[in-house]
Structure formats: C-alpha cells, structure tokens
Design a protein around this nucleic acid. Sequence first.
DNA 1: CACAGAATTCAACTAGCGTTGAACTCAACA
DNA 2: TGTTGAGTTCAACGCTAGTTGAATTCTGTG
Lengths: 200, 200
Amino acid sequence: MIRRSGRRPGNQDTKQSILEAARTVFAEKGYDSGSIRAIATAAEVDPALVHHYFGTKEKLFLACLNAPINPAELLPQAIEGPRDQMGERLVRLVLSVWDSPAGVAAVAMFRSALSNEWTARLLREFVVTQVLRKAAAEVSMNPAEAPMRAGLMATQIAGLLTARYVLKIEPIAGAPAETLVRAVGPNIQRFLTEPLPGVF
Amino acid sequence: MIRRSGRRPGNQDTKQSILEAARTVFAEKGYDSGSIRAIATAAEVDPALVHHYFGTKEKLFLACLNAPINPAELLPQAIEGPRDQMGERLVRLVLSVWDSPAGVAAVAMFRSALSNEWTARLLREFVVTQVLRKAAAEVSMNPAEAPMRAGLMATQIAGLLTARYVLKIEPIAGAPAETLVRAVGPNIQRFLTEPLPGVF
DNA sequence: CACAGAATTCAACTAGCGTTGAACTCAACA
DNA sequence: TGTTGAGTTCAACGCTAGTTGAATTCTGTG
C-alpha cells in the first residue's frame, strides 16, 4: 500500500465556484467575450488558478456543459401524452429547463453558438445526436420529411430562446412560461404533425 | 506585398470600398469580433485610413447601417393584398431583403445584436420605431394585443433568420425562399390575426 | 511648375486577452 | 518537527485590438 504524504486534496469549493462563475459569465457574454479574467474576478480568484484546474478556456467551457442537463431523461416528458398536444409539451419542457438554475449552462451554450464557430458546431452536434435523433425515433414520422420538420421547429424554438433569453425582448422575456406555451405550442404542433402544402 | 507610403494613385472610391468591406466583415463576424484591421485588410488599405474616414469603430458600424434598406418603403409590399396571406407576404419580404446584396447590412446588424449589448439596443430601437410602429398603424389591431402579437412574430422571424443566416442549419439555410414562405407564413399569420386562446 | 492639401501609410501607444512557470502558503502526514 | 505537495498567487510573455500623430506621396489649382 502506497501512502502518499503531503496535503490531502480537499476543499473543492473553489473549483466548483469557478465553474459556477464560468457558467454565469459565458451565459451573459458568450464564449469569445467571456474572459477568463472576468470569470476569475467573479470567483474571487487569480486567473492562473482557472488554468490550474481546467487547463484551457476551451476545456473550461466544455466543463461548464457537463452534467446539469440530460435531454435523454427529459425528452419522454414531451413525448408521452396526447399526440395533438406534443407541441405545447415541447415548448413547456424547453422553457422549464431554461428558466431553471441549471439552465444557465444551456443559455451559455446557445449564446456562445451565436457568435463563435467552434461552439456552434458543438451545439449542432449536441442537438442532432442527443435530441433530434432520439426524438425522431420516438415520434413516428415520414423520414423524408423529418429533417425539414425538425429544422422548422428549430427556427421557432431558437427564435423563442433568442427573444426571451438573449435579446430580452418584451413582452416575451417577461411573459409567464404558460402564456408562451399556449401561444407558440400550436405552431410547433403544425411543424411537427400537420401537412405542409407547398413544402412537401 | 510592398506598399509604398503615401497617397495611392487614382482610385478615389476607397471610402466606399472600406464601407463594403466593413459590411461584409461585420455580417460574418459581428461587431465585437469584426476587427478594423480585418476590414482594412479586406479593403486593401491601412487600418489608420479607416479611422481617417470614419473616426471610430462605432461610427463605422453606424455608417454601415445607413441607407441600404428602408423598411418604410418596403412595408407596403407586405401590407397590401389579401389580409389572410399577410403572413406569407411578410416572410417573403424578409427573405427577399436578406437574400439580396443589400441584406449584408441587415445580417451585420442582426448578428452583432446577438453578441453585443450596444448593437442589440440599436436593433431594438430600429425595429420598434421603423418597423413595428408603422406596421401597427397600417394593420388595425387590438392595441392591447399588439405588443404580444409583435413579440411572437419576432420570435418566429428572428428564429428563421438565426437558423438560415447565422447558424446556417440545414435544410433551412439551403431551402428556396418560397418553400420557407409556405412553411412559416401560416404561423406568422396565426400570431398576426388569429385568436390566441389562453394568451388573451 | 510650385505648392496646398487630400489621400495614404508607418510606427508606436495603451489596453486586454490566454497562457505559463516560478514562487509562496499551509494543512496533513512521517 | 520537518517534508511534502495541493492550493494559490505573482509577474511576465506574446498576441491582437483600437487608436493616434507624424511622415510620405499624389493630385488639382493658380
């Protein structure tokens, strides 16, 4: 048995608080503009310590995305239930996640994807592999139509998120989630299941 | 490349070519990441010359937005015609403008607004004063409902622009404009004129 | 043909960024 | 009690950015 001497690894508080500061800063500023120095200041720590724990800015960003949200667990909430209300359930799910504390990581990823190529690629891969593929498997749908329907839904969802969390346009930003669910849900429903004459 | 110092022979339209380079760069990178040095390189010019003509980066960006698109002139195209197809006409108008060469200025403004507070404020003011107010005056609508309806339309339009021109998500980015008009138009129409139960 | 002034470039300043390696602190073990 | 090594800070590097003022070269006018 090897007994190691020296100070034991304890007090992971700082590492965690750096992570939280990073999530907040990235969510507010995006990847490019969210500086390591700003994160360090927010965590009341020296910038070099951030590198000591996370190596590079890139790795820190990736660490911010790990864990807090697992679409595979959440998707069933949107899929189970009456087929003709799936649109509303989807909007409700998305808003509930983004309004929650764990949502800052998602906001960070989305905001960053809007201004940085690398994070945009990351988001696309994440959405395609973790969300769309699994969703398509659950929802039986004409495979030829699936990509366009998914894309159209993406426009409405992305626009909702942009208006509410990025641009903060009123009255969308301040509206109760359920109001938006009622307003936007049916349009998602149309993209999801209704015939789209002139498109297909 | 050997550039001699001093005045360049002939070619007096440098200021204009700087403007065009600036529009392109801002459209591709946004305000923050679009550097004056990159613009100068694209225009085959020294960075100092940009300042000589436009003063600061801020003023250069403002100059990029002047002129090319005047919503007041275009709006009637969307408003005149059968009321029940206004949604489609709106989408068609937006896409035709953004797909045109003059659209780069709009792309620049939109892309910048997504990552920079200052330009976001600029976009909000522009949309509210130049578009929404004039549109609301033309389209008779319950004034109590107007802000929410405008906001909802903004989510779908913003999402469409984000997917097509910023994130470049397929098959939205590559789809013919008219396909998107058919697909998205009716949803805009719903936000515009249909009763929204559970919202109002 | 000279010369005023516009057009253009050069070189440098300041400021902020990510990153690095050495140095310091100090709780826990031998 | 001295040693160790994780936790933390300091100071600096190289880079890119926006901006500035002086220097250089061309063009139009008298």
